[in-house]
Simulated assay, not measured.
Amino acid sequence: MKRKLTTEELITHIKRKGITFNHMTKDENGKYEDLDFAYLTDLAAIDMQLRQFLLELCLDVEHGVKVLLLNRISDYLPNEDGYKIVQDFRNGPDFGSRQYELTIDNLKHNQYLKEMSRKYSQNPPVWVFLEIVSFGGLTAFTEYFCNNRKTTKKLEKISSLLRYCKNIRNACAHNTPILVNLFSNSDRLDKRPRIIQGISNNIGIPNQDTYYEKMVDLISLFYIHKSIQSELLGKFQYNKGQKLIQRFHRHDWYEKKKI
C-alpha cells in the first residue's frame, strides 16, 4: 500500500509543481508565474459560496414551477381530477415512464414519507407527485404538460429552459465546481439555443459569452427565477447576490492574472 504523505512532504510536492505560498507565510518561486496557493484556496471558497447561492435559486425555481403547474391545472383544467394527468405522463413518452418509476421508487424508500407512500405509491395525484418528484422528473413532467395540455406562453418558455437550469442544480447539489473552465473551448457550443439569444440581449450579456454551456445554464436559471419570483423573494436573493459579488472582490489578486 502506498504510504500517505506527511503535511510537509505534501507542501514540498506542491511547491515542486510551481505553486507558491507567499500569502500563506511561505516563499517559493515556481514554474507558474504569479500563482500562489492562496489564490487557489480563495477561488475554492468563492466557488463554494457561489454554488450555495445558485442552489438556493434552483430550489426557488423548483418550488415556483410546481406552483405554476398546480395553479394551471386547478384554474384552467376543471375537468382534471389530478390523477389522470399523472397516469397519462406515466403511459406517455418513454422518459415519462422512467421518471414516474424513479419517483415512485424513491417514495417507497424514503424513510420520512412512509405514510405518504402507503397511501399514494399505487396511484399518486398530481399534487403528491410534484411534491416528491426530482428536478429531472419535474423538467420531464413540465415538458409533457406543455406538449399535451392547454398552457401559457410563460410556462412554455420556462419549460424550454428548465433542462438547462437542471444542469446547474445538479452541479451545485453534487459540489461540482462552477468556475473551472467557465469559458473553456471544450464547452463552447457551435450553436446556442435560440431562446438564449433573446434573453441575453435583454439583460446585457455579451453575445460571445452565450456560446458556452455553463453560461447557457446560468442565463436560464436567472431568467426562470426572475419570471417566477415574488417581489420579496427577488429583493432577498438580489441582496444576497450583491454580497456575493462583494466577496468576489475581497482581493485584487485576479485583476491582471489568469488562473
Score class of each variant (00 low, 15 high):
N22T: 10
R16D: 14
H13E: 14
T6R: 04
I14W: 04
R3K: 14
F21Y: 06
F37I: 06
N29H: 03
T6P: 01
M24S: 07
R3V: 10
R16M: 09
M24F: 09
E8C: 05
I11S: 06
E8W: 05
R3M: 10
K26P: 00
K15E: 04
T7V: 14
M24D: 03
I14K: 06
D27H: 08
N22D: 13
F21L: 00
T25W: 09
H13W: 01
D34K: 08
Y32E: 10
T20W: 02
F37Q: 02
T20V: 03
K31V: 08
N22E: 15
T6D: 03
D27S: 13
T12K: 09
L5V: 06
K15Q: 12
T25L: 14
L35P: 02
E28P: 00
E33Y: 08
T6N: 03
T25M: 08
I19Y: 09
T12W: 00
I19F: 11
R16C: 05
E33P: 06
G30F: 08
M24A: 06
K15H: 02
M24R: 14
K4D: 15
G30T: 05
K15A: 01
F21Q: 02
H23S: 03
K17V: 04
K4E: 15
E8Q: 13
F21G: 00
F21N: 00
D36C: 03
K4T: 15
K26A: 10
T6S: 13
D27G: 05
D34T: 09
T7G: 02
M24Y: 07
F37L: 04
G18P: 02
D34N: 15
D36M: 03
K26H: 08
T12A: 10
D36V: 06
K31G: 00
E9N: 07
M24Q: 14
G18W: 11
T25S: 10
N29Y: 07
T20A: 15
M24E: 13
G30Y: 10
G18H: 07
I19C: 04
D36H: 04
I14E: 10
E8F: 08
E9R: 08
L5G: 05
R3S: 09
K26W: 05
H13M: 07
K31T: 10
G18C: 06
F21K: 01
N29R: 03
Y32G: 04
K15S: 03
M24K: 10
H13D: 09
K17H: 09
F21T: 02
R3T: 13
T7D: 09
L5Y: 07
R16N: 15
K17A: 11
T7S: 10
H13R: 12
K26N: 09
K4H: 10
F37Y: 14
R16S: 14
F21C: 00
E9H: 07
K17F: 11
E9M: 05
L35N: 02
